[in-house]
């Protein structure tokens, strides 16, 4: 939702997605400059660490407001894993929890005015999705050895269809990380762009007739609420789909 001017006297709704250099850093001839994207990622990480350590440091038996929020998020992810993976998924709780909290923090920080939405960068979402994909594939091969290849021939498929089904199943397996990353990226980018486009209508309309400016203003308020819902929902969907892929790798069906 950052609203920097594009330079030529106008606000592009896409200017908010620009990655800019914030701190110049040169170490041993390597260009390690810190961008606004990196800064907000660090902020998200710091927020999650703060959330899960400081708020729970009192460890009251009857949790206070913040402590129960932390416990709630723990329960939420733990139940998500129990429902979608089963008990075998418990060793992977730290990973799923980290993934969920990081994406949620990035999305929520993106809702702050003048902030930068890290998850609107396709590199970031693809990076996260491919980490899940590669990790899950490795888990599948470790658990089942070469038997994991049987995953690509679903039960009950007649033999003569195998040459057709196997390539399609392999392809659909390869598509998973792309659709996983694309979904997060598309939702966040589309939502934030829409917000800016509608916000751009307020002043031009309001300047000439006082009443019409109210209409896009109402739309922006509604969209902001919707964006908060999407920010949570997309983090949830990402985590759930990671759980389902994990389930497939562990149980193979």
């Amino acid at each position: 939702m950052a609203s920097e001017a594009t330079g030529e006297g106008g606000h592009s709704p896409l200017a908010q997605f620009e990655v800019t250099k914030m701190v110049d850093l040169q170490i041993a001839g390597l260009d390690l400059h810190i961008t606004n994207s990196a800064v907000w990622m660090m902020a998200a990480t710091a927020l999650v660490i703060l959330f899960t350590t400081v708020f729970i440091s009192r460890r009251a038996l009857v949790p206070g407001r913040m402590q129960s929020l932390v416990e709630l998020s723990y329960e939420f992810v733990a139940n998500m894993i129990k429902d979608n993976v089963g008990n075998e998924g418990r060793p992977y709780f730290p990973f799923i929890f980290t993934l969920f909290m990081f994406i949620l923090a990035c999305n929520m920080l993106g809702m702050l005015p003048y902030s930068f939405t890290v998850t609107s960068q396709i590199v970031v979402t693809f990076g996260l999705a491919f980490v899940v994909f590669i990790g899950v594939t490795i888990i599948g091969f470790v658990k089942h050895g070469l038997g994991f290849f049987k995953f690509f021939l679903p039960h009950g498929v007649p033999g003569f269809l195998a040459p057709l089904v196997i390539p399609i199943e392999v392809l659909s397996y390869l598509i998973r990380p792309v659709s996983l990353g694309l979904r997060l990226f598309a939702n966040l980018t589309a939502g934030h762009t829409m917000l800016k486009v509608f916000a751009g209508f307020i002043v031009p309309l309001g300047a000439f007739y006082v009443i019409p400016g109210v209409i896009p203003m109402a739309a922006v308020i509604g969209l902001t609420v919707l964006e908060f819902a999407i920010a949570f929902l997309q983090a949830y969907v990402f985590a759930v789909l990671s759980c389902i892929y994990l389930h497939d790798a562990i149980h193979m069906h």
């Binding site: 598509i175 659709s179 979904r183």
Partner: peptide
């Protein structure tokens, strides 16, 4: 839509 686009894009 994303599912379909991703499938075609990847393949």
């Amino acid at each position: 839509a994303i599912e379909m686009v991703a499938a075609l894009g990847v393949s």
